[in-house]
Amino acid sequence: MMSKRRGILNTIFLVSVFVITFYYIFHGQDMVELRRYIRNADVSYWLVAVLCVIFFIGSESVIIFYMMHTIKQKIHLGHCFLYSFVGFFFSCITPSATGGQPAQIYYMRKDKIPTPIATLVLMVVTITYKMVLVILGLLVVVIRPIEMIQYLQPVLGWCYLGLILNVFCVSYMLLLVFHPTMAKNTLKMIIMLLHKIHLVKRSNHYLEKIEHAMQQYQDVASYFRIHKWVVWNVLLITIVQRLLLFYVTYLTLQSFGFKGMGMTTIVVLQGMISVAVDMLPLPGGMGISEKLFLTIFTPICGSITLPAMVVSRGLGYYTQLILSALLTVVAHLMIGRERKRKK
Rank of each mutant, 00 (worst) to 15 (best):
G7N: 11
L9C: 09
F22R: 13
E33M: 12
R36M: 14
R39H: 10
Y45F: 15
A49E: 07
I57V: 12
Y66I: 05
M68D: 10
I71Q: 06
K72F: 15
G87F: 02
C92M: 13
S96Q: 01
Q101H: 01
R109A: 02
V121A: 08
T126W: 03
V132D: 00
L133S: 10
L133P: 04
L139N: 04
V140F: 05
R144T: 01
I146K: 02
Q153T: 09
V155S: 00
L156G: 01
G157Q: 09
G162L: 05
L165K: 06
N166Q: 10
F168D: 01
M173Y: 03
L176T: 06
H179N: 14
K188F: 13
K188D: 08
M192G: 08
V200A: 15
S203K: 12
A213D: 15
Q215H: 14
V220I: 09
A221E: 14
W229N: 09
V231T: 13
Q254D: 10
Q254M: 14
F256E: 07
F258R: 04
F258D: 01
G262F: 02
M263H: 07
P283H: 02
M286I: 09
M286C: 07
T305F: 05
R313A: 01
G314T: 05
G314E: 02
Y317C: 03
L323T: 11
L326G: 13
L333F: 14
I335K: 03
E338F: 11
